[in-house]
């Protein structure tokens, strides 16, 4: 029984040890220089085939005492050796200079932009992050890579481990290195889809745009969870055909206030999701808005900076945003 148990745990144990070994440096602050001690070198599949062909040729040359065949074989082995160093030098001393991913919403894919530096030109360096692969060169001392990954959770998410790999110039040898950069990608909460209409949280009404269309009975919509209670069209709802809420169409210039504490939703994530949707929608319609969270108040505003400030606050809010 114990044997079978050991058999089943052996690969995972090996994998764990391997991961432990690879990650032994922990998260590293950039820039990271790929010192030669960090590089792993092994022959690639074509390299093994090259070796196989070379060995066959050597056997033939030795058997028939054919000196020129032997010379050719040794030339090829010498070539393999040169290529080994060439490939090694192609990755040695590469500096992982910067990684950066523009913030995205949870559920989207984020694009990680990565810059590598090297004092000399380097070619065909592959960077892998989970499934995503990109290959580029370092020319004129710098090169850029783009990788994509799914943003699942909101908050400052750590980046997955990067694998830098090169087989240049002949593909006979693979040289690679791992790095876990101490960088994060900011993931905003997933905006609620479709965007619920703006709640009336007592935002200051703008001077020239206080018109609220559909204040009358003809413009109602069905109640969604989380709608403020005071927006409920009681009269209409009382008719027993469902609960209705007054629908506000806001003209440009309306100043909105999105308040976390006023949302009538149990789940924190759902609240954040709705607030996010509102912030996005308000920015899209170039409205002025304010976001209020416990311990955060953005103040009235609009524009890129304000928008990102609000979304960042939403992303890092509470327990879910810390990871």
């Amino acid at each position: 029984m114990s044997i079978s148990k050991r058999c089943s745990t052996a690969p995972t144990l090996f994998k764990r040890l391997k991961n432990y070994f690879i990650n032994r440096r922990g998260r590293e602050a950039l820039p990271v220089r790929l010192h030669w001690r960090r590089l792993y070198v092994l022959p690639s599949k074509p390299g093994l085939f090259f070796f196989l062909i070379g060995s066959t040729m050597m056997l033939a040359g030795l058997n028939f005492n054919n000196n020129m065949s032997l010379m050719l074989v040794f030339l090829l082995f010498g070539l393999a050796q040169v290529i080994l160093y060439k490939t090694f030098f192609n990755l040695k001393n590469v500096v992982i200079d910067q990684v950066h991913a523009a913030p995205v919403f949870a559920g989207e894919r984020y694009t990680l932009r990565l810059q590598l530096l090297a004092p000399t030109d380097r070619y065909q360096i592959q960077v892998k992050m989970d499934e995503s692969v990109d290959t580029a060169n370092i020319l004129h001392q710098s090169g850029q890579w783009q990788l994509a990954a799914d943003a699942e959770q909101r908050g400052y998410q750590p980046l997955p481990r990067l694998k830098l790999l090169t087989r240049y110039p002949l593909g006979l040898v693979t040289v690679w290195a791992y790095c876990q950069p101490k960088a994060t990608v900011l993931v905003y909460p997933r905006p609620e889809q479709p965007c619920p209409s703006f709640a009336h949280h007592g935002g200051v009404e703008g001077p020239d745009s206080s018109v609220v269309q559909g204040d009358e009975m003809d413009d109602l919509r069905t109640y969604q969870s989380g709608d403020p209670i005071r927006d409920i069209a009681w009269k209409k709802s009382a008719q027993g055909q469902g609960t209705f809420v007054k629908k506000y169409h806001l003209k440009q210039g309306k100043e909105l206030c999105f308040d976390y504490s006023q949302l009538n939703l149990k789940d924190i994530e759902k609240r954040l999701s709705r607030l996010t949707a509102w912030v996005v929608e308000a920015e899209r319609q170039t409205l002025t808005y304010q976001l209020k969270l416990p311990q955060f108040d953005s103040g009235m505003g609009r524009g890129e900076r304000h928008y990102h400030e609000c979304l960042t606050a939403l992303a890092v809010f509470g327990p879910g945003g810390v990871s």
Binding site: Q98, Q115, H140, S142, G143, Q144
Partner: peptide, 12 residues
């Protein structure tokens, strides 16, 4: 030229 290229390549 190097400076200009850098500005185009910069991830941020």
């Amino acid at each position: 030229q190097w400076l200009i290229t850098q500005s185009r390549k910069h991830p941020h």
